[in-house]
Amino acid sequence: MDNPPSTSKSMTPDSQPPIIHKKDLSFLDRIYIPQIVNGLRITITQIFRPKFTRQYPEERWTPPPSFRGRPVLVEQNGVERCVACGLCARVCPALAIEVQGSETELLKERYPVKFEINMLRCIFCGFCEEACPEEAIVMSQEYELTFTSQDDAVFGKEKLLMSVEKLRDRLEFLRKNR
């Protein structure tokens, strides 16, 4: 990011909406009624406008690759890419992640025996994804998260692993926007 976007125009003091004092109001304004009628006209016309509601469980939404759904661990060739470096856990502002590393025979030497994300704590900021040196944790497009107990909300490796094919869109997006 080169330049942070300048704060939007409407925030600058000189472009605030003008202050209208009571004495500036005309008689019609003051008796409210024309304004109320006008308001009613607006609300009533809205009633007949098309609706925006999506009938959720039947009609689902496929998020764009820029969407930050629940964080998942990338699985490649049957194993997670993660090397349990704990950087995601360190950067996580919500302290949602817990990683325990251990030795593996694989070339990467180190793998997470335990990798847990507390989905009740996660705020979907994507910092973990940004910090990860191995591109091993990414924000998926999944947004459906329901649990019936606090312990259910702690996702272990079995729930976090997702094959790299399913995450292709996101990985591509990340590479393009690095």
């Binding site: 090397v83 349990a84 470096c85 950087l87 590393g101 990467k108 030497e109 180190r110 040196p133 191995e134």
Partner: peptide, 10 residues
């Protein structure tokens, strides 16, 4: 090597 993620010294 770029080993910091798996290096205990990090």
């Amino acid at each position: 090597p770029l080993d910091c993620p798996i290096c205990d010294e990090a």
